[in-house]
């Protein structure tokens, strides 16, 4: 999942997680200032410089368009465009702040959690959840195909698809049965590969450690956050008016 967004040289996962959460938190708290766009731009440039170009571009594009549409609808409902910029800014912020996490493969996050002696059952569960989303999606598609072969119209606008009896008997029950089957096979497979949940000292094949590059990234994000907090609560700089 999201493999197209993964950076070639990902950041240390826990630093990426902390930066992502803190930058979002600080951004949301200080979102009322127009300088939020400078903060977003700085984060964009930083992420591009650290090799997260694909994720940065896609999130900016997606959330930017989404934010403008949502902001326009809100402005039309409120009949004023005075604070129109706040909605796109918040949407962009959410999109940009998840970039460091999107660029990290989930396996790296679980590896670093393993190194920190996080219970292995928890890291196993996290990894399975992420890895199995496409598998489950494929299973759902197969169940839908099976429904179609039995004469149920499964197009999204078809009323037959939303009929409770069809949804319950022909979709939910087979889906749960299939999941029980998959989980039984998978747990047998995990156990037969000598997975021992009690052994916390198990070897991590590819160990992950923070480097100077990661600390530089964290420092720059912290500086951006500090500047935004100071602008919002201490300096309160006037925003230059744009005259057309």
């Amino acid at each position: 999942m999201f493999s197209q967004f993964h950076a070639r040289h990902p950041l240390y996962p826990l630093i990426a997680l902390a930066c992502s959460l803190l930058s979002l938190l600080v951004g949301m708290v200080c979102a009322q200032t127009p300088y939020i766009f400078a903060y977003i731009l700085f984060l964009d440039v930083l992420f591009l410089a650290f090799g997260m170009g694909m994720a940065t571009l896609m999130m900016n594009l997606g959330m930017g368009v989404f934010g403008i549409v949502a902001g326009a609808i809100t402005a039309l409902i409120n009949r004023t465009f005075d604070m129109f910029w706040i909605t796109p800014a918040r949407c962009l912020l959410i999109g940009v702040c998840v970039v460091p996490l999107l660029a990290v493969p989930p396996a790296m996050l679980t590896r670093s959690l393993n190194q920190l002696h996080c219970p292995r059952l928890i890291t196993l569960g996290m990894l399975i959840t992420v890895r199995f989303i496409p598998v489950v999606f494929g299973e759902m598609r197969q169940i839908k195909d099976a429904m179609r072969s039995r004469g149920i119209d499964t197009r999204w606008y078809s009323p037959a698809w939303y009929r409770p009896s069809n949804l319950y008997r022909a979709f939910l029950v087979p889906l749960v049965m299939r999941m029980v089957g998959i989980s039984d096979t998978l747990s047998l497979s995990v156990e037969s590969r000598a997975f021992d949940p009690q052994r916390r000292d198990a070897t991590v094949y590819h160990s992950v450690h923070p480097t100077a590059r990661d600390w530089t990234f964290a420092t720059l994000v912290l500086l951006a956050m500090a500047a935004l907090i100071l602008e919002r609560f201490v300096w309160d700089l006037p925003f230059p008016e744009v005259k057309l």
């Binding site: 989404f66 949407c91 399975i128 999606f137 989980s183 747990s187």
Partner: peptide, 28 residues
């Protein structure tokens, strides 16, 4: 918790995450 408990919970969580996608159109 046994391995099979965790595996079942994780697989079902993946199903649940997909159904959570229903909230995407109303996220904003």
């Amino acid at each position: 918790f046994k391995v099979r408990d965790i595996v079942f919970l994780a697989v079902l969580a993946a199903v649940n995450t997909l159904f959570g996608g229903l909230a995407m159109p109303v996220m904003r």
